[in-house]
Amino acid sequence: MTTARSATQRLIYGHAQLHDCLAFADANTAAEEAAEITALAAARTWGEARQVQMTHLWNPAGPDSYEPEDGYADDKPFTLNEVSSVVEGDWPPMVTERGLELLPVDLQAQFGKRKFTAHNGDYLEIPLDHETELVAELRRRGYKVTRDDELINVLDGRSFSPMA
């Protein structure tokens, strides 16, 4: 039996709307990551955006990326969909790419297909109709697996994306 490259044994999964397939995330950190995404999306000014603390992700509006003296004053209105790394699809990272690290390699090959995107790298496409079989096999191998479509899509940026 092939093991996952990550020690994660608790997974959240769901229907990732952007790629219309199943996606998986580490249940130990998924809710905290989603809270970081939601907090940044809720910022109303660049000052608020710069202050959002990130533990699991990086802040694409942080002081390392945008300086007040470059036209991003603290009181200037902030819209997450105008941040270059968000516009380019680099933030948040595609939730569908996580399966490449979280799932055992043999199950990736059996239930999914590695797909390439020109701008954002590879992701694992797992058709929705493989859900029952894949989840049963993960559970048989000792994984605790919980479905949460909303959380998966927040992790994918669907809560603020104009494409949502």
Rank of each mutant, 00 (worst) to 15 (best):
S85T: 10
V95L: 10
G142C: 08
T132P: 05
V105N: 06
L102W: 08
H119W: 13
T146C: 03
K144W: 15
W91A: 09
K113A: 13
E150T: 12
G121M: 09
P93F: 13
D74V: 10
F116H: 07
P127L: 15
V95Q: 04
D148S: 06
N81E: 13
T132R: 08
L80P: 11
T117D: 14
V154N: 11
H130Y: 08
D129N: 06
R141F: 11
L124N: 04
K113W: 14
P127I: 09
E125M: 15
A109N: 09
E131M: 03
L102F: 12
D156F: 05
Y66P: 05
A118H: 05
V86M: 01
S85G: 10
E131I: 09
Y66C: 13
V83L: 07
E125H: 06
T96K: 01
L107P: 00
V135Q: 05
D149H: 03
G89L: 09
E133P: 02
H119S: 11
L102A: 04
L103K: 01
V135P: 11
L80F: 07
D149N: 09
P77S: 09
H130S: 09
S85M: 11
A109V: 04
L155I: 11
L151S: 13
E133M: 00
P77N: 08
T146K: 02
G71H: 10
E101D: 03
P77L: 06
E101V: 00
K76L: 14
V86L: 12
E131N: 07
A109Q: 03
V135E: 02
H119N: 15
T117Y: 05
H130G: 11
N120P: 01
H130D: 04
I152L: 05
V83C: 13
R147L: 00
H130Q: 13
D129S: 14
V87G: 13
E125N: 07
K76W: 04
E67T: 02
D122N: 07
P104Y: 00
V135A: 04
P104W: 10
G71S: 13
D106N: 07
V86C: 07
A73Q: 11
F78K: 15
T132Q: 15
D122Q: 14
G71V: 12
V95I: 11
G71T: 10
P93I: 08
R140N: 09
L100R: 10
V154D: 11
M94R: 09
N120R: 00
R139A: 13
E131A: 10
Q108G: 06
R140Q: 05
Y72D: 11
Y143L: 01
Y123Q: 04
K113M: 14
E88H: 12
H119E: 14
T146G: 02
H130L: 01
G121P: 07
E125Y: 12
V83I: 04
V105D: 00
E133V: 14
H130E: 03
